[in-house]
Design a protein around this nucleic acid. Structure first.
Lengths: 339, 339
DNA sequence: TTGTACGCGTTATCAA
DNA sequence: TTGATAACGCGTACAA
């Protein structure tokens, strides 16, 4: 058996026609029990396997979905993908992975590419921002369903899955206040990205609720990496009145800050309490362990997949838009537990 | 433009035939410059995009490769996948991800599934072991190229990409000896998996080279998780003569051990030095930071992809078997630096 | 240089 | 109940 068996091979074997074989294989009622069994028997005998490509071409459904993220090997995205896979694989879908490196041009190419591959849908965490929303819109105006997750842009026709970043920012900040902190700084990343806007707003509103004045010198925008975090911490501590807490929208930035503070013998949480965002794995193993807001990536992936499934079931005539917001859970650890 | 444009649409537009359009699009020399430009112009005008499915069915090449790993959201595998993607995407391949959860039955189904999808190759880290090598062989005896990486089984016709686990085990152990450790324990995981055999052998040979007697009570087999690591450390420390070092084949197991040792106020590295394996991200952020053997997952992914590419270029008549062994790099950190 | 005709593997429609 | 035929979108011998 050099070549793969087709329905023609099994038709020839039984002196019937391929159409009949196809019917037998697909549980079509219009066929005699006898020939069906015959077909099934020779199918296994010839080790026949359905060719998904042919089926896809014929049906117009490839049973593939594209998943596009900035980086595959970041814990958060890897876990989201896992959630998507978990949900979609049992339904017979294959997941095609691509990464953008946060490069918008690359993202456009990737989307085009996936569309050419006739994927049945695209789940993506975009690197486009409010500034280039229109450009993004152009590459998306297709009949193929798009689901945006985590890093999203809002359009009337496109479903999104996010966590409640506002609530996350609010709860984290309020927690620090409850611990007795009064001078709470904030690490922001990029206000042209919705989720950072929301975290920032949560922070501000929590301060306001507790009558703590907002000070703009306590807010630093930084890249999401250790070096930037170090610099930011340094800047803060050189202030005439340094903060007694940091709520960071990025765990990675916070990591750098913590390392810097420890090098300066500033005690965490006694001298300064910190809470991060993302619940990166390292946060729980550090000394002290770092409090962080969990984004439940697995659930987010599953939810994105579910929204996609609903979308393609719903007689595609009218698009159902669905904006799911998952809860954000603050995980309190030593870095913000003074008692 | 509700429907996607095909070559027929653009043919009709120009009153030529689809064949001519196809030629123009594929840089076929047998065509006049004039019609080519005409075709190209209307192609962009109609927003034509090649249907990969049809091409795949026609050519027998789907330009998809399957990647199968135990878990997507483990740092090591996520990074391998990233390496594969980095290498394959520029060559026009799409990467289809699947995870087995270390379930052999699931792995078999996944492979079948990918084969039905007509992937051009499968790169996988298998959950089959020496004991069920034959069963694995059966599901693989296909014309589709298979590349095994990290967790491999050896067959004459199948290429593999691994790191030098033996060398990793050897160097890690010798490093501990150099640091003055004389009673070096070993955390093993599963001797039916080749890579753990090799690490174990490296450990033993390093001891032998330095005339340190091998003690079998110093070797513990455990699951790759924190709880198991805790128990293992406890067992070791309750020995009449507890070790002064641990070389662990698993970072995760070692993590549990370190936590246990610290809870017992055993100082690392002063009282006991440790070296792990995998260079998991958390190892560098812990206090003390943990020495570990790096597996260069990115390179492994790239290499697996390269081996695959060679394989399909080579006029598939004779299979080229290629067993690549990447170097293992010991990363020395505080947990094994006494000076 | 261009057109005609066919096949890749399936399924769906119509006839028998 | 089964067979013949067309169609999905593309590339490519072969003929013109």
């Amino acid at each position: 058996m050099s070549k793969k068996a087709t329905i023609y091979d099994i038709a020839k074997e039984l002196n019937i026609t391929a159409a009949t074989v196809s019917r037998a294989l697909n549980n079509n009622p219009k066929i005699s029990e006898k020939t069906r069994n015959l077909v099934l028997a020779t199918a296994t005998k010839l080790n026949y396997k359905q060719n998904r490509l042919a089926l896809a071409l014929k049906s117009g459904k490839s049973k593939n979905v594209g998943v596009v993220v900035p980086f595959i090997n970041k814990n958060f995205f890897a876990s989201v993908i896992r959630g998507i896979e978990d949900e979609l694989y049992p339904k017979g879908f294959h997941v095609i992975i691509s990464q953008t490196y946060e490069d918008r041009n690359r993202e456009k190419k990737i989307i085009q590419n996936l569309l050419n591959a006739q994927v049945d849908g695209i789940l993506l965490s975009t690197s486009f921002t409010e500034q280039n929303k229109d450009e993004f819109k152009e590459t998306v105006k297709k009949s193929t369903p798009f689901i945006l997750f985590d890093r999203v842009l809002r359009f009337n026709e496109i479903s999104t899955v996010t966590i409640d970043d506002y609530q996350g920012g609010f709860v984290a900040t309020e927690h620090l206040i409850t611990q007795g902190c009064k001078k709470i700084a904030h690490f922001d990343v990029d206000q042209s990205i919705e989720l950072y806007q929301h975290r920032f707003k949560g922070y501000k509103d929590a301060l306001a609720k507790h009558n703590i004045p907002f000070r703009k010198e306590y807010v630093i925008s930084l890249q999401s990496n250790m070096e930037a975090g170090k610099d930011a911490a340094k800047t803060l501590m050189n202030l005439p009145e340094p903060p007694d807490a940091i709520f960071s929208s990025t765990d990675n930035g916070l990591l750098g800050a913590v390392k810097y503070l420890q090098s300066k013998s500033i005690k965490i949480p006694e001298d300064l309490s910190v809470v991060g965002f993302s619940n990166e794995p390292f946060t729980q193993f550090m000394e002290p362990s770092i409090s962080s807001v969990d984004q439940s990536p697995l659930e987010m992936g599953k939810m994105a997949a579910k929204v996609f499934l609903e979308q393609i079931e719903n007689d595609s005539n009218e698009k159902v838009q669905n904006n799911v917001v998952l809860p954000a859970k603050l995980i309190v650890r030593k870095s913000s537990s003074k008692t």
